[in-house]
Structures are given as C-alpha cells and as structure tokens.
C-alpha cells in the first residue's frame, strides 16, 4: 500500500505559524518550530568518553562540550544534557544512523527526533520572556552563547541552550508537553507580541 504515505504532524496544541499576543509593532519574541530536525541523545559507555568524543568530532566536526555548555558548527550542535550525557541536534536527516556508525559501541545513541520538540526563541524580549519561565540567571554575565542548562520551565522539564548572543535560545522538551509549553509561551509572551514560524520562514 505504498500510496498511503504517512504525513508528519506538528505536536498537538501548537498552532499554525502566525502572530499572537500584542497585535501591533515589531514582535518582541520570535519563535520557530522547525519540523525536520534530528535530535539524538549520546551516552558514552564506561571509559569510552574519549573515543566517543573523537568519533563525534570526526563525524559532526564538534567538540564534546563541558558540563553546562553546548558547542556548535553551523546549524549542528552538541549540548551537555547531564552527567555523561549529550544531545546532538542537526538539520540533516538520519542523524541517529550517522552517529551510530560513527561511535560504534562507544556510546548508546537514541533517536529522539520525534520524542523531543525544539523551539527557537529570539527577539528583543526573549530574555524577559524566559525570566517568566526559568529560574536560571540568564544575564549575559552569567549565561551566554554556548551555555546549556537543564531546568524546569513553568512546570515542564526542558533543556535550555543559548544559541547566540543576540540572544537566541533553543528550548528542547518532550513532545507530549508541547501544548502546555505553548500555553505558557502564548500567555507569557503576549505583552511583547509573539511571532511563530516554521523553520524561520517568517524572517
């Protein structure tokens, strides 16, 4: 039944791209929900951190980050996500297969491209928005591009990565919570004006 090809769906509860909250003026917060990202967790096995890091460097061209940090090259990134645990993010498809080939039996690779959703948050008021969700100190003196944190956001668990100094952030959370995240986002960003796009098409 090759004619029944399955179509991808956005996570439940996240609306179609558009403008939300304060309707006028430049939106203070811009949010992108890319629909074709690859996301994988990487957990090196005992004593294999070095070999794993070398394989990742060779495969993705990215150094394995230190605790609380994220390294990136172009649109690919590897972020620390816990003790001996990392998350790789890429625009390229089939990242899990690529990483499994690269690291072999040095690490457990788990594809989370569908288990996680990633929201890119930027704009003039991005930091003021996140103040309403996370307790992490996001002042540039404390949290800058290349920093990563695992933190509650409202009542959800998220991984927060600062992608650029602008600032822009990446927020990664479990897919099933996307509706709750959106609810928080729309309420909290309402006063700034919020623009939602897919893959940056509204830029």
């Amino acid at each position: 039944m090759a004619d029944l090809r399955l179509q991808k769906q956005r996570p439940f509860g996240v609306p179609q791209p558009g403008r939300f909250g304060k309707p006028d003026g430049e939106p203070g917060v811009r949010v992108e929900l890319p629909d074709a990202l690859s996301i994988c967790t990487i957990q090196p096995f005992r004593g294999r951190n070095g070999a794993c890091a070398a394989a990742l460097k060779a495969s993705m061209g990215i150094e394995t980050p230190a605790t609380g940090r994220a390294n990136r090259t172009g649109s690919d990134a590897i972020a620390w996500s816990g003790p001996d645990m990392f998350v790789a993010i890429s625009n390229a498809p089939a990242l899990a297969d690529r990483l499994r080939k690269a690291v072999g039996d040095n690490a457990a690779i788990v594809d989370q491209s569908d288990g996680k959703v990633l929201f890119r948050v930027s704009g003039r008021d991005a930091r003021a928005l996140l103040e309403k969700g996370v307790t992490v100190d996001l002042h540039p003196r404390a949290f800058a591009a290349g920093h990563a944190a695992l933190t509650p956001l409202s009542h959800l668990s998220v991984m927060l990565v600062q992608a650029s100094d602008a600032p822009s952030y990446e927020i990664v959370l479990s897919r099933a919570f996307a509706a709750d995240f959106w609810h928080w986002l729309e309420e909290s960003a309402g006063e700034f004006g919020l623009a939602l796009s897919a893959d940056g098409s509204s830029r």
Partner: peptide, 11 residues
C-alpha cells in the same frame, strides 16, 4: 555498564 533513556515520546 548500561545506559537507558525514556523513549515514551519518541514512538
């Protein structure tokens, strides 16, 4: 030497 992670949301 074992690693695990939740894939509840993946599938």
């Amino acid at each position: 030497d074992v690693r695990f992670s939740s894939v509840t949301d993946q599938w």
